[in-house]
C-alpha cells in the first residue's frame, strides 16, 4: 500500500518535471481562473463596504414631547434595544437637546434671549434608532406607532428617510444580484478553463496511460499520479494566487482609499482576516474540480 502510494507520488513528480512547460501552463491557467474568482470576492467586499457606510448613516430619530420624562424615554429605549431588528439606540436627554441647540445658536442673541424668556426647557428627549438592515425600519416604525407611544412621541423623521431607505434597499438588492450574476459567469468560465486545461494535460499522457494498462496496471494506479498532480497543481496555484492577490492589493489600496474617502475598508485587512476561508475554499474548490476533471479525462483512456 505504502509502496504503491510512494510510486504514485514519484510518478506524479516525474510527470510534473518531465512536462515542466505543460505543468507551468496548467498552473498559470489555474491562477488566472482563481484571480477571476478573487476579483469577484474583492468587488463583493468593496460594494458591501460602500453599502455599509451608507447604511450606517441612516437612522430614525424619534422626538419625544417636552413633558415626557427622561425615565420614560429610557424605558422606551430599553424596550427598543430588546428588539432583534434594532442595532443601536442613541439617547439624547432633554438637557442634551437644549445644550446642543444652545451650542448651535450661541452667536444668535435673539434665540438666546427667547430661550431665557421661556424660562424652561422646551425640548424633549430624542432617540436615534439604527436597524441591522434598512429593510427592518418599517417594522421599527410600526412598533413605535403603537397607541402607548403615539401619545408621548411628538415626531418621527422616518417619512423623510423612507425614499432614501427604499432606494438603498433596491440598490443593495441589485448589487447582490449583479454580484451573484458576475460571480456565476466568471465561475462558469473558470470551471470550463480548468476542465479544458486538465483534459489537455491528460491527453498528452494518453500513450503512457495505454501502456500502463497493457502491462497490467490497475485503474487506481493509473489515476493516482493524475490525482496527486491535481493536488500539486491546486496547491501551487492557490499559493501563487494568494501572492499575486496580496501584491495587487498592496498597489491598489492607496488608489482605493483616494477614490472612496469615506469608506474605511482595508482590502488587505479583509483578506488577512478571512485568508484561511477565502484561499482554503479556493484550494478545495480547485482541487475538487481538477481531480474530478482528471478522473473523467483519464477514464476515457482507461478503456483499453
Amino acid at each position: 500500500m505504502f509502496l504503491s502510494f510512494a510510486r504514485v507520488v514519484r510518478l506524479s513528480l516525474q510527470q510534473f518535471h518531465r512536462n515542466l512547460w505543460l505543468s507551468i501552463a496548467t498552473i498559470t491557467l489555474l491562477i488566472l481562473s482563481l484571480l477571476t474568482v478573487n476579483l469577484v470576492v474583492a468587488l463583493g467586499a468593496v460594494s458591501q463596504a460602500a453599502v455599509t457606510v451608507v447604511q450606517d448613516k441612516i437612522d430614525v430619530s424619534v422626538y419625544f414631547k417636552p413633558e415626557v420624562s427622561n425615565e420614560e424615554v429610557e424605558q422606551v429605549r430599553n424596550t427598543l434595544l430588546k428588539r432583534s431588528e434594532v442595532k443601536e439606540v442613541a439617547y439624547i436627554p432633554k438637557e442634551g437637546a437644549l445644550a446642543r441647540f444652545k451650542e448651535r445658536h450661541k452667536d444668535d442673541p435673539v434665540i438666546s434671549e427667547s430661550l431665557q424668556e421661556l424660562g424652561e426647557n422646551p425640548f424633549g428627549a430624542t432617540l436615534a434608532v439604527s436597524a441591522h438592515d434598512p429593510e427592518q425600519y418599517p417594522k421599527i416604525i410600526e412598533f413605535l406607532e403603537a397607541p402607548e407611544y403615539k401619545e408621548i412621541i411628538e415626531e418621527k423623521n422616518f417619512e423623510d428617510h423612507r425614499l432614501v431607505i427604499s432606494r438603498i434597499n433596491t440598490l443593495m438588492r441589485n448589487i447582490r444580484s449583479f454580484g451573484l450574476g458576475v460571480a456565476g459567469v466568471f465561475g462558469v468560465i473558470a470551471i470550463l478553463v480548468v476542465i479544458n486545461t486538465v483534459r489537455v494535460a491528460v491527453y498528452t499522457h494518453r500513450g503512457e496511460i495505454r501502456i500502463m494498462r497493457l502491462v497490467g496496471a490497475s485503474s487506481w494506479f493509473v489515476r493516482g499520479p493524475f490525482l496527486f498532480e491535481a493536488l500539486l497543481f491546486s496547491f501551487a496555484a492557490t499559493i501563487l494566487t494568494a501572492a499575486v492577490v496580496y501584491l495587487g492589493l498592496y498597489f491598489v489600496q492607496p488608489h482605493f482609499d483616494r477614490l472612496f474617502e469615506n469608506v474605511s475598508l482595508s482590502l488587505i485587512g479583509y483578506y488577512s482576516a478571512n485568508a484561511i476561508f477565502i484561499f482554503g475554499a479556493q484550494f478545495v474548490g480547485i482541487f475538487f474540480l481538477t481531480a474530478l476533471s482528471s478522473f473523467f479525462a483519464v477514464r476515457r483512456y482507461l478503456r483499453v
Binding site: M212, V215, G216, A217
Partner: peptide, 9 residues
C-alpha cells in the same frame, strides 16, 4: 515499470 505497476518490491 511493468513490475512497479503491479506492486513488486
Amino acid at each position: 515499470f511493468a513490475l512497479e505497476v503491479v506492486g513488486a518490491l
